[in-house]
Write a protein that binds this DNA or RNA. Structure first.
Ligand SMILES: [Zn+2]
Ligand SMILES: [Zn+2]
Ligand SMILES: [Zn+2]
Ligand SMILES: [Zn+2]
Lengths: 134, 134
DNA sequence: TTTCGATATGTGATGTTATTACATTAGTCA
DNA sequence: TGACTAATGTAATAACATCACATATCGAAA
């Protein structure tokens, strides 16, 4: 499930929309982009997004209700640590990175508190280097 | 601005609704709870929430579209580091903590990338110790 | 005290994001 | 074939959030 080839038609269409975008897209923006391909209802987008999230090919940005293609295209599912996103509020660009020490600190807290973590969101909002130099 | 006394009527009503709740509440849940106090429209809630967020008295949980009273009632605005939330998907309980090392690591990344951070979200979803022992 | 500006409020309409419910279609495997 | 699972199509609805405009409240300046 880590190759674009095995995707269904709708999943491919949604993934390609995200992959060619230069930033995150909302589900309804994707829907509008794919009307020419036969998309008519939000569920067609959301169902594909759910699968792509499962496969680790895209990420959901909780703080802006949008989705972005994973920037590590050949290592889906991020078997390494948890992922952080830096989101520019000016231009919308998203930088994805992971940090082992943050991963460790979060795991330390959860284990010491008996908390079984399933998914962790780290989103840094601000202004990127390009936009800050304006 | 760090005392409940200086709040307006609507702000007090919304804050008290969150303070007496045992977990996060959505804006519309708050609205329903306050209909008896004269609330009729979402904006009455959202405007109060915005102010309370400004004052640091409440937090917004991005991953569940809900709001929670700050669990550090006497140190609003968290002049210390950034805050992380552990959210139990079973019972809804939220634990709030901050970690200087995580704060440092995030700041290291942002400064080295010229990214001016304004607000950082860290939300850990999972199952708390109580619910995990079921 | 009157005037003014800033803040807060009331209300309806609208915009945006996500899910429910049900019917249909397409592939898989006895 | 039949039975099963996954994927899809569609309409309706739910859940979350903001816009636009009118009104009210309060404190400082004149
Ligand atoms: Zn990724
Ligand atoms: Zn930017
Ligand atoms: Zn707090
Ligand atoms: Zn729990």
């Amino acid at each position: 499930m880590t190759s674009t080839q095995e995707l269904t038609k709708n999943q491919s269409l949604v993934f390609n929309a995200l992959a060619r975008a230069d930033g995150p897209l909302s589900a309804y923006t994707i829907l509008d982009q794919l009307r020419g391909d036969g998309f008519r209802a939000p569920l067609q987008v959301y169902r594909a997004l759910d699968k792509l999230l499962d496969y680790g090919m895209i990420h959901r940005l909780e703080s802006i209700n949008a989705f972005v293609a994973c920037s590590h295209p050949h290592e889906h599912n991020h078997s390494h640590g948890m992922i952080a996103f830096a989101i520019c509020d000016k231009c919308g660009q998203v930088s994805e990175f992971s940090d082992d020490i943050i991963t460790d600190r979060v795991r330390d807290w959860t284990t010491s508190h008996g908390f079984k973590q399933s998914k962790t969101t780290i989103e840094i909002r601000g202004v990127c280097a390009n936009c800050g130099n304006a």
